[in-house]
Amino acid sequence: MMLRPVQMTEYAGREGLADMQELVQRTWSPTSRLHLGDLAWERASNASRSAGSWRTAVWRDGGQVVAWGWLEQPGHLLMTIDPARPELADVVVRWFRETAEGEQLAAGVLETEQHLLDALVSAGFRRDDAAPYFTHHWISLDALDKPVVPDGLSVRPVRADEAAKRAAVHRAAWSDVQPSKMSEESMATVMSTWPYRSELDWVVENEAGEFVASALIWLDEQHQVGLVEPVGVATAYRRRGLGQVVNLAALHALREAGGTRAVVCPRGDDGYPQARALYQSIGFQPGSRTLHLLLG
């Protein structure tokens, strides 16, 4: 049987997210690198800072999206290919090599995405095992511990009018190495991006009304799987168990919303073991890891 020719559409900037999410959700399995929440968070939270340099290409067979490639950085490729059309991986990698800028081209896949890995290796990419990597961690929602909130603090979901405070706690938690650029505008973009749900965006609040920890979960209703992304605790409130508290509260809310399991993707190497230790203390179990590949 001859396959019909596919049609490519290229996007610049923020466009193309819905097409990308459509394919990710339709083809998702536990062996997939990306959850539709990954795309929602990465593209919404970075839209005001990075969208000007983004290049995205989407391939369609008729009206159905069957492949896409995204230069999330000028020389770094993320892609999703319908497993039923593995030959398109070669097409996307070729587009990447013709389009990308920079002296060193790189790509990231999950080790279980063999159809993507084969295309990259055939094009001359090699594994960089010295690079940081991430490990998918999984938890079933049928036997969650209850969060124990320390005295003087409370835990609750975010309200729609609290983008400024929600951005502030993100900055307080993610400014260790360099100042976070999360603004109220960027957080408002996140909160307006499908499939964001405020009832799955949880915070720990102190007596002064400040948010001091947060955990956001993105629910794929079709697969009943929630992605935990991101989680943070303000530096002044660390080592008090608030990472566990806010995660467990959000996971309970995910179960109430119809989720049956959750996935989170912390660093798997020993360069930053703290996040992995937190999730494993809650009950997440490690699964597949990501691979970083370089051209040449």
Rank of each mutant, 00 (worst) to 15 (best):
L36T: 02
F125I: 12
Q222C: 05
A277K: 12
F134L: 15
L141G: 07
I217N: 11
N46S: 12
G124F: 11
V91F: 03
H35A: 11
G209Y: 06
V264G: 02
A277C: 00
V225F: 08
I217T: 09
N46P: 09
G268K: 10
V158N: 03
G13M: 06
Q285P: 01
A163H: 12
P273G: 00
S180H: 05
W41H: 13
D201N: 13
L3W: 03
D220H: 09
A213S: 11
F96G: 02
H292S: 13
L251V: 00
T112P: 02
A249P: 05
L34D: 10
P30S: 01
D118V: 07
G13Y: 08
G226M: 07
G296P: 11
G62D: 04
L291N: 00
R239S: 12
E42W: 14
V212N: 02
V24G: 01
G296M: 06
D145C: 12
Q285C: 10
T9K: 08
L116E: 12
E10P: 03
G37E: 01
A84L: 14
W28I: 08
A253E: 09
M1A: 15
W138Q: 11
E199Q: 14
V66P: 08
G271I: 04
G243T: 10
R97Y: 06
R127E: 13
D176E: 12
T27F: 08
A163S: 13
P147H: 04
R239F: 01
W95I: 02
L144R: 15
A249Q: 05
K165V: 07
P230A: 09
L77Y: 14
W194D: 12
G232Q: 03
A234M: 09
R85H: 14
L200N: 03
T189Q: 12
G16N: 09
P5H: 03
T235L: 08
T235N: 04
Y133K: 07
R289P: 02
R238M: 11
W202T: 11
Q178F: 15
V66L: 09
R166F: 14
P74D: 02
A262K: 06
R60Y: 11
S288T: 14
L227A: 06
L120V: 14
R14V: 15
V177P: 02
V65I: 07
I282E: 08
W70G: 07
A172R: 13
E184N: 05
L23M: 02
R43M: 15
T31N: 06
G62N: 09
V169W: 05
V233G: 05
A262D: 09
G258I: 00
S32G: 00
D61G: 10
E22P: 03
A275V: 14
